[in-house]
Simulated scan of single mutants.
Amino acid sequence: MNEATKGVQRIASVIRVRPEKLEEYKRLHAQPWPAVLERLRASNIGNYSIFLHGDLLFSYFEYRGTDYAADMDRIAEDPITREWWKLTDACQERLPGTPDGSQWTEIPSVFFME
Rank of each mutant, 00 (worst) to 15 (best):
E114T: 05
A42R: 06
D89G: 10
H29W: 07
I15A: 11
H29K: 02
R41M: 01
T98F: 07
D73G: 05
V14F: 05
A4S: 13
V36F: 04
R41Q: 12
E38H: 02
F51D: 11
A42M: 05
E23I: 10
R74N: 06
M72I: 01
G54D: 11
E24K: 10
I45L: 03
I80H: 04
E62H: 06
P108Y: 01
M113E: 08
G101F: 01
P99N: 12
G65L: 05
V14L: 10
R74W: 01
P99M: 07
P32A: 02
P34H: 14
S43E: 04
L56E: 08
T5Q: 12
A4D: 15
Q103A: 07
I107L: 14
A69V: 08
E106G: 02
L37D: 05
Q92H: 14
E23H: 14
E20C: 02
A76G: 11
R74D: 11
E24T: 10
R82N: 04
Y63K: 01
R18H: 04
W104P: 00
A70T: 11
W84H: 08
T88G: 01
I45P: 00
Q9A: 12
M72V: 02
W84R: 02
A69H: 08
K6F: 04
A30H: 06
A30N: 12
P34D: 15
P19T: 04
F58P: 01
Y68I: 03
V17Q: 07
R82P: 04
E38A: 13
T66L: 07
L52V: 14
I107T: 09
P108N: 04
A76N: 12
Q31A: 15
E93S: 09
W33K: 08
A76L: 09
A42E: 15
L95E: 09
A90F: 03
P34M: 12
T98E: 08
T66E: 12
A42K: 09
I15H: 01
D55A: 14
Q103M: 12
V17H: 07
D67T: 06
A4V: 12
E3A: 13
H29P: 00
N2M: 11
S59K: 01
L56F: 11
Y63D: 04
S102V: 11
E3D: 14
Q9V: 12
R16W: 01
D71W: 00
T105Y: 10
L52I: 14
T5K: 08
A90H: 05
N44Q: 13
W33M: 09
R41K: 13
E24M: 06
V110E: 10
F111P: 05
M113T: 12
Q103W: 06
Q31M: 15
N44C: 12
S49Q: 10
Q92W: 02
Y48C: 09
G54P: 01
A69Y: 03
N2C: 08
S13P: 00
V17D: 02
Y48I: 09
A70Y: 02
Y68G: 00
G46E: 15
W85C: 00
A12Q: 13
Q92G: 01
K6E: 15
W85M: 07
N2T: 13
E83G: 03
Q9M: 11
F51N: 05
M113Y: 08
T66M: 03
Y63L: 00
T81Q: 08
Q9E: 15
P79M: 02
E93R: 12
R74T: 07
